[in-house]
């Protein structure tokens, strides 16, 4: 098998490994409704430090990133989360997540 052939196995995506050998956990963060307005943008890509294991960890980490995040997550208990477009609780593990979304309780219908 040539080196240019795509890797079709389900193992870790080594192309995402950081130069120093630790995996750079790249995820897309998405924000909706007033969470989006307070954060100031709808979407961003971030590299998560390895110690960020759960939604609750991520919220704590985001709150330390600046005033807009601190404002959006001032009352984290009223912010809901989804991993890869499925509702999750704050203790949900981020391992393998590609897209993590934060939003207020839904009000459709």
């Amino acid at each position: 098998m040539g080196v240019d052939e795509p890797d079709m196995t389900l193992g870790p995506d080594t192309s995402r490994n950081a130069p120093n050998g630790t995996e750079a956990n790249r995820v897309t963060l998405r924000y909706f409704a007033w969470v989006r307005e307070k954060v100031g943008h709808a979407e961003e890509e971030v590299s998560l430090p390895p110690e960020i294991a759960t939604i609750a960890d991520l919220v704590d980490w985001l709150r330390r990133r600046g005033d807009t995040y601190a404002s959006a997550f001032a009352r984290p208990e009223v912010v809901r989360a989804a991993i890869d477009q499925t509702h999750v609780r704050t203790d949900a593990a981020l391992h393998g997540a590609r897209e993590i979304a934060f939003f207020p309780p839904v009000t459709g219908g």
């Binding site: 409704a33 979304a101 839904v106 009000t107 459709g108 219908g109």
Partner: peptide, 12 residues
């Protein structure tokens, strides 16, 4: 309707 209102990600 009850489930849609509690689960579907819409915001008014």
């Amino acid at each position: 309707m009850d489930y849609l209102k509690s689960r579907a990600p819409f915001w008014k």
